[in-house]
Write a protein that binds this DNA or RNA. Structure first.
Length: 563
DNA sequence: CTGGGGAGGGGGCCC
DNA sequence: TGGGCCCCCTCCCCA
């Protein structure tokens, strides 16, 4: 046994410290993170075990949920970041920077999350500062950490189903060297998905009390983005609809509310408190900044975007491509240093992400959030080729980088719908805006004495802005379904919904052979030919056989090309 | 280095 | 509303 008791204790303490340090590092990298906490527009990745060990609230939720939505009136992203830091380090960030107000916010959050230790710490801090915790920690009346006084708690509307971030262990049972390499990369990417915090859709404020089981699925989008894997390869779990928040309002004009469908057991079915447009005008909800990283919820996501890390500040064309990975925006200086130096640095020559797209690259301080605004009657979206629409103001841009450049011009404070509507009513709408991007996107030259009101889609020149808007509506009508996350417009709702799944990293269709997951069943069927060796597509010219028709077509082009 | 093949992923469109 | 298919882009591997 131990001769020197003090040494033994010391070693133990180091062990704990090292363990926590490792966990925190893993959290920073997203490694083995198995739960995502949604706070307003930010996502935080974490480990269920750690959360459960720290919070009674989380303990009650994490066994059932891979996605947990927190009441934005109780905790803001920045506060939750501190909370998470505390959970993983046992320390609060520099006390010098912790104002009474932020301590109060922390206390509110700690109480909400039933983090007794943190709450006690905050109380001591407040007491030390001469404040009475009770006066600053009235959950029902205290301002939200972002400074807004919350209105009455509102339950979100229709619960949603979503494919959970089921665990998708791709590391095993790989067949074939080539596939192994590929999946190996993918596995690495998944690890890299790290960054514990990503912005998601226009998640309006879903206000749920802990007792209400703030469950979220893939995100207050008013969409059922889930699919059921025909393979049923993941654990099936049923959530009682009675435990779910009740619908309170209709949702998006472009997205039909999804009724709570629970008759069918779904894999890790989760219910998401939907949000409602009726909250928009009052609630200080923000639209998430369109980011070039698609959110990847759970392990499913192969990376969708990567522009942020790759080219800070340098926009690139956004296109979701294989190999891209989620690089969530960090908030308030969220340190992702852990990922630096890892091999997670993606090839840099790659051009970016897709509509998810856009934001100014690089790490952000994450405050560039906006009220999410559902397209509504009178909503003036981007048109034609301007597929990237700024949701708050409705301006359309041909590329996500332009959109994000524009988004950056928005004030970082919340933009209230009313204010915006007032602006529009005051005339000119966005054309009156001084944002140069608007001129660029609208074909109006800001410096010109007599701006030309030219449609960016068909180049038609209109006599004035009003005419241009009317004209552009004709284009808009062709793409009435905007993505709530990136603003990209779609011709069909189904296409948009499918697109959303890519943002959320929802890949419900799993290959029973290798565990690879797909966003579409068709892809899975196509993929299965890899395992079966079936090559149904044969070149009539050379007899070459292909597993995919597209590759046959590509092959045929080779035959027919002049060279 | 280059071209071809394999394959993942996204959007459009039809049913 | 979702499935299926087509087309496209892209990446990766390999010869």
């Amino acid at each position: 046994m131990c001769v020197n008791q003090s040494v033994c204790e010391m070693e133990q303490q180091n062990h704990f410290k090292q363990l926590l340090l490792q966990l925190n590092q893993q959290r920073a990298k997203g490694y083995l993170c198995d739960v995502i906490i949604v706070v307003e527009n930010a996502l935080f990745r974490a480990h269920k075990n750690v959360l459960a060990a720290s919070s009674v609230y989380f303990k009650s939720l994490v066994p059932h949920d891979n996605l947990i939505n927190l009441d934005t009136e109780m905790v803001s992203p920045s506060v939750f970041r501190q909370v998470l830091d505390f959970i993983y380090t046992g320390r609060l960030s520099s006390s010098d920077s912790v104002s009474d107000h932020s301590v109060s916010s922390l206390l509110t959050a700690a109480s909400y999350l039933q983090l007794t230790e943190l709450a006690a710490l905050c109380r001591r801090k407040l007491k030390h500062n001469g404040q009475t915790p009770s006066s600053s920690n009235k959950l029902t009346t205290s301002p939200t950490p972002n400074g807004h006084t919350p209105g009455p708690l509102r339950l979100s509307s229709t619960p949603l189903r979503a494919t959970p971030s089921h665990h998708n262990n791709h590391s095993g049972s790989r067949k074939g060297n080539l596939r192994n390499q590929r999946w190996g990369q993918e596995g690495r990417l998944r690890e890299d998905l790290s960054e514990e915090e990503v912005f998601i859709s226009g998640s309006r404020c879903a206000s749920l009390s802990p007792s209400g089981g703030s469950r979220v699925n893939g995100l207050a989008l008013g969409l059922d983005l889930s699919k059921r894997s025909p393979s049923g390869s993941t654990a099936t779990e049923e959530v009682s609809p009675s435990s779910l928040p009740q619908s309170s309002s209709p949702h998006s004009s472009s997205v039909s509310p999804t009724p709570p469908t629970t008759a069918e057991p779904r894999e890790n079915q989760r219910q998401l408190p939907n949000t409602s447009t009726d909250l928009l005008p009052r609630a200080p909800c923000k639209r998430p900044r369109p980011h070039r990283e698609a959110t990847n919820l759970g392990e499913t996501g192969k990376a969708l975007h990567k522009g942020l890390v790759k080219k800070p500040g340098a926009p690139g064309h956004e296109k979701l491509v294989r190999g891209d990975r989620v690089t969530p925006e960090l908030e308030d200086g969220e340190v992702d240093g852990e990922e630096n130096g890892q091999d997670q640095s993606e090839e840099s020559g790659h051009s970016g992400s897709e509509g998810g797209g856009g934001g100014a690259g690089g790490k952000r301080n994450g405050n560039t959030n906006y009220i999410y605004r559902q397209p509504q009657p009178g909503f003036e979206p981007g048109v034609g080729d301007n597929l990237y629409v700024c949701i708050p103001c409705g301006k359309g841009f041909p590329s996500s980088e332009q959109l994000n450049a524009h988004v950056d011009t928005h004030t970082q404070d919340e933009i209230y719908i009313e204010e915006e509507e007032e602006e529009e009513e005051e005339g000119g709408g966005y054309l009156k805006d001084e944002d140069p991007d608007i001129y660029a996107s609208r074909g109006v030259e800001p410096g010109a004495d007599e701006p030309r009101h030219r449609c960016t889609v068909c180049s038609k020149t209109c006599k004035d802005a009003v005419s241009l808007r009317e004209h552009e509506k004709s284009h808009w009508l062709n793409r009435p379904f905007p993505c709530n996350i990136c603003g990209k417009l779609f011709t069909q709702r189904g296409t948009m919904t499918r697109h959303m799944r890519s943002h959320l990293g929802l890949k419900p269709f799993a290959c029973e052979e290798c565990g690879m997951r797909f966003t579409r069943q068709y892809r899975l069927a196509e993929h299965m030919r890899v395992h079966s060796g079936e090559k149904p597509y044969e070149c009539q010219l050379c007899g070459g056989k292909f597993t995919q028709q597209r590759n046959l077509l590509s092959h045929l082009k080779m035959h027919t090309s002049p060279s």
